[in-house]
Design a protein around this nucleic acid. Structure first.
Length: 200
DNA sequence: GGCAAGATTCCCT
DNA sequence: GGGAATCTTGCCC
């Protein structure tokens, strides 16, 4: 399928429209290097957050704070967000001053399974290592320290992975944003049909 | 400084 | 299915 020593995706990859990027990221390989070793997973589930017009987005109505600042810059950077006891990973998209992002909600383990297992002691099976946005960051060792990191460089990057046919991609409403009015129903969540590492 | 809320996960009344 | 866990951010409710 692919070799982990291959090159990261070029910066140009991130300059496509956010909804296109959310679909293009499916099948790509997300890689994280730590002192303990290297882990990677195939992206199987994403959600698009469409900036100022999207009530569910942190950058809704052009809200600009220390936390959302990275989304106003160039695409292709990591937007990590701390949620309760967990950390979530987004890929910044949209050009400068277009604060859009794609949330990574699920990956399929590819390399470093032993390390993932040790980082996810509560998981009862392999599937529970990475079938959720907070789980996959823990399994891969992604933390708030990765905020703003360019996804074209070590130690956290994305490269081409599995080829995905358009017919394998399914879309539907996003998850966990029930109190955001009409934005709740937008079909901006994308996943690979039948993949068991999809969160729901 | 303080407090409320949150794109979640885990465990149990 | 419901509530606790427990950290960061944002705004002063």
């Amino acid at each position: 399928m692919c070799n982990i020593t291959d090159k990261p995706l070029d910066k140009k990859f991130y300059y496509q429209p956010t909804l296109e990027l959310a679909k293009a990221l499916l099948g790509c390989l997300l890689i994280k290097e730590t002192p303990n070793g290297i882990t990677s997973g195939i992206i199987v589930e994403t959600e698009a957050y469409m900036g100022p017009a999207d009530r569910a987005a942190h950058s809704f109505n052009n809200r600009r704070t220390m936390r959302t600042e990275i989304m106003y810059g160039n695409p292709g950077h990591a937007y990590t967000y701390s949620m309760h006891t967990h950390c979530l990973l987004n890929v910044v998209s949209g050009k400068t001053d277009e604060p859009e992002a794609v949330l990574i909600r699920g990956v399929e383990p590819y390399t470093g399974q032993n390390l993932m297992a040790s980082r996810r002691p509560k998981a009862k099976n392999e599937r529970q290592w990475t079938n959720g946005p907070g789980k996959l960051t823990k399994a891969l060792g992604i933390t708030m320290a990765d905020y703003g990191h360019p996804l074209t460089e070590s130690p956290l990057w994305i490269m081409e992975g599995r080829k995905i046919e358009a017919t394998q991609i399914v879309s539907g409403p996003r998850i966990g944003i029930d109190n955001t009015g009409e934005a709740r129903d937008y079909p901006w969540r994308f996943w690979l049909k039948g993949n068991k590492y999809v969160s729901k």
